[in-house]
Design a protein around this nucleic acid. Structure first.
Length: 695
RNA sequence: GCGCCCGUAGCUCAGUUGGAUAGAGCAUCUGCCUUCUAAGCAGAAUGUCGGGAGUUCGAAUCUCCCCGGGCGCGCCA
């Protein structure tokens, strides 16, 4: 609701300024520091002052006087040195939020085309329009996330990826976008090969015994250890290891021999483990896109032809890259300003031949690199490859879930149309791979797909490291230097890291103990359900409250905290509201009809500021969600949920709702708590967090 | 060497795209459970926004230069 009003006001202001002063400029609207200064303020007159050579306060006064009414905005006032402060119609805002049930469904983006009024808004219907992706919201969006190498158990870093991706999906879908979730499975890569070598060569297993092993409940943990051991083994005998690895990898890629058989068993089994782990956190997928099909269905061959034909890649004939197909470093001239050109020219003749920036796409032995495969995959996502996968349901999906996977066998005719072109693609991949993601986009550009390159969004995030104390607790040996640092990086190769399932188990154990203590009356099933919801809330919120480019120094003490800026804090606010609602229902308080006069009176003036601020915040979910999308930052929604919970707690302690003597006021307070509940529950659901009935 | 990111309270982090008096949480201290769940609330204290220069009505935010840290630059992924 806030966002909607703000946009309406911004458009009206911009038009007014255009008509009156013939100046075209973007109107900035911000939240004033105090509610006494209104709900939205613009410093636009400072900018205008420069252009018109008039005092900003004077301009502000003119605008405030002449400005015609915008629906929902009571008045404009001049403040400070020339701010324009807008005051909302509180009663109307309340009415829309409570009666009109605004913002509940995904119709929230039903922003009018212009300020032509309600009629057009309704006509615009559910399709909606979002400022950031104007005219494009009908297009399909692909979000690729998780994409864990299927060779060992998932760890906390993988969980950050999955939670970020899943939350992005939830926010996009809430905004009315059509989103498809893909999880890329590198089932033919070196990491799988390493475990295969560990099983076949180090542990001397047969394919049959590996199959048995893969059915054990802790197979993903076993592989974790085997992978670490294999890494040690390679380090000890580099020469043999390189050959063994190369041979194994090729056998897997070509789908022959015991190696390939075992690789398939391992990868398929581990994928199922990952699906199960993520399902515990409420994370699901539409499609598992497997690298084996990219190979078998010759996706790369098609991409290779396109790249060669367009000249995007060339065969190096001299230098140390001789025999490789390389993508030459992009010459910035295209988009960058001419200055860059000049600088380069001034620098003169230097280094034309051995350009280290060139990226190898096909090795001299003819095998394609990861980036090459990724270019093919990205082309497919945009419907530019001219090929499609075949699809079949994944056999071992978690209960009640349908996941599709690519296949090179016969496809299921009832499979959804996964090959339909996407308009925007988000790839949730850690920040260290920024360069590779750039190369992929560069590949698209070189093929003439500048628009798609633009819409290939590397949704980057920083790693989850461990605090030195946490690493020490886990028994890892640290150098003196490492012990002094704020964090130490985990290493899957060394077998270091916090396994996702271990962490979830710990969280559930801690919350269950607490629930048992507090609610002995609950059934065992209810206790488990409640503690699970709180555990997931704690973990997801913990990973989402940091912005993407913040390195998280993981510590059990922080992750297991349920106080302060945490998921459980937000859940607790909802639980309190539900408690009030239950009691209110018994007391018949739900029946009270609140008139708009009551609401307007209670929210009005200085006396109403406190309640009004809560209403306003509750009505600002749309802004938080919009910001999360345009700013590509799910943390904004987490911040919002916390702020709303905090504001509610303040209100809760100040107003005793059920014992309020004045019936109209009591009814109003009750409606207000219900409004907060709805908004908070929605905000939490965007974060993938469920609010329990009791906790 | 080249490229990207970061430096804000004792600690961990926000800071709405350049705006009004820089904010939270944790930790510390002091209070509040015969009243809708204390996983809560109220209060106290803490800042050369790494340093310097510049841009302008106005800078934590933009530019440049330093200082300190992280990451990436492989015929690995």
């Amino acid at each position: 609701m806030y966002q909607k009003l703000k946009e309406r006001l911004r458009d009206a202001l911009a038009r007014h300024i255009q008509l009156t002063y013939h100046v075209d400029l973007g109107v900035v609207l911000e939240r004033p520091p105090k509610i006494e200064m209104g709900e939205a303020a613009s410093p636009v007159c400072f900018e205008l002052a420069k252009r018109l050579k008039k005092a900003p306060r004077m301009i502000a006064q003119e605008i405030a006087n002449d400005f015609r009414k915008v629906e929902g905005v009571a008045r404009l006032e001049v403040a400070g040195a020339g701010y324009l402060n807008a005051y909302f119609e509180r009663g109307a805002f309340w009415e829309k939020m409570v009666i009109g049930n605004e913002e509940v469904a995904s119709g929230e983006w039903r922003v009018a085309s212009n300020d032509e009024g309600e009629g057009t808004e309704k006509a615009a219907g559910l399709k909606g329009k979002r400022p950031a992706l104007q005219g494009d919201s009908g297009g399909k969006i692909i979000v690729e996330h998780t994409s864990i190498n299927p060779n060992k158990a998932a760890h906390i870093g993988h969980v950050r990826n999955a939670v970020l991706g899943d939350t992005l999906v939830r926010i996009l879908r809430h905004a009315g976008h059509r989103v498809q979730i893909q999880n890329y499975i590198d089932n033919t890569g070196v990491q799988v090969a390493d475990v295969v070598i560990g099983l076949l060569w180090m542990e001397k297993r047969t394919p049959v015994s590996v199959k048995m092993m893969a059915m054990e409940p802790r197979f993903d943990y076993d592989c974790w250890d085997i992978y670490a051991k294999a890494t040690q083994f390679f380090a000890a005998d580099k020469v043999n290891a390189a050959k063994l690895r190369g041979d194994t990898l090729r056998a897997i890629e070509e789908g022959r021999g015991e190696e390939s058989e075992v690789a398939e068993v391992v990868a398929d089994a581990i994928v199922t483990f990952h699906l199960r782990t993520m399902a515990r956190l409420g994370i699901y997928y539409d499609l598992l896109a497997r690298e084996s099909e990219i190979l078998h269905l010759k996706f790369w061959d098609a991409a290779f032809e396109m790249l060669k034909k367009s000249g995007a890649i060339v065969l190096a004939t001299t230098g140390k890259m001789a025999g490789c197909w390389i993508m030459p470093a992009e010459k910035q001239e295209v988009e960058e300003a001419k200055e860059v050109k000049k600088e380069a020219a001034e620098e003169g003749e230097g280094g034309e031949e051995e350009n280290i920036q060139d990226k190898i796409i096909v090795r001299s032995n003819g095998t394609v690199t990861y980036v090459g495969k990724d270019i093919a995959y990205q082309l497919w996502k945009f419907g530019l490859l001219g090929k499609d996968f075949k699809y079949a349901k994944w056999k071992n999906a978690p209960a009640e879930e349908t996941v599709w996977a690519t296949t090179s066998m016969k496809g299921d005719p009832h499979a959804p149309n996964f090959g339909a072109a996407a308009s925007t693609v988000y790839n949730v991949i850690d920040a260290r791979q920024a360069y590779l993601q750039d190369v992929v986009a560069q590949g698209l550009r070189a093929l003439g797909h500048a628009k798609e390159a633009e819409r290939s969004i590397h949704f980057a995030y920083e790693i989850v490291a461990l605090t030195p104390r946490c690493a020490a607790d886990l028994g890892y040996e640290l150098s003196e230097e490492e012990a002094k640092k704020p964090y130490v990086e985990v290493s899957g190769r060394k077998g270091h890291g916090v396994k996702a399932d271990d962490l979830i188990d710990k969280l559930e154990a801690a919350t269950l103990a607490e629930v048992r203590e507090r609610h002995p009356e609950m059934s065992e099933e209810e206790k488990l359900k409640t503690s699970h919801a709180i555990a997931v809330g704690a973990l997801r919120f913990f990973l989402l409250k940091f912005t993407r480019n913040s390195i998280i120094a993981f510590d059990f003490a922080d992750a297991l905290s349920f106080e302060g800026e945490t998921g459980p804090y937000c859940q607790y606010a909802v639980v309190r509201i539900r408690g009030i609602r239950r009691k209110g229902l018994e007391a018949g308080a739900a029946e009270i009809a609140v008139t708009q006069e009551t609401a307007t009176a209670l929210l009005g003036g200085a006396a109403g500021n406190e309640l009004w601020e809560l209403v306003l915040l509750a009505g600002s979910l749309d802004q938080a969600a919009e910001l999360a999308i345009s700013g590509q930052e799910p943390a904004f929604v987490a911040k919002y949920a916390f702020q709303l919970a905090q504001a509610f707690n303040l209100f809760y302690h100040k107003y005793h709702i059920l014992t309020e003597a004045d019936e109209q006021k009591r009814g109003f307070l009750l409606r207000l708590t219900e409004l907060v509940e709805r908004q908070l529950v929605t905000a939490l659901s965007l974060l993938g967090i469920e609010a329990p009935e009791k906790m």
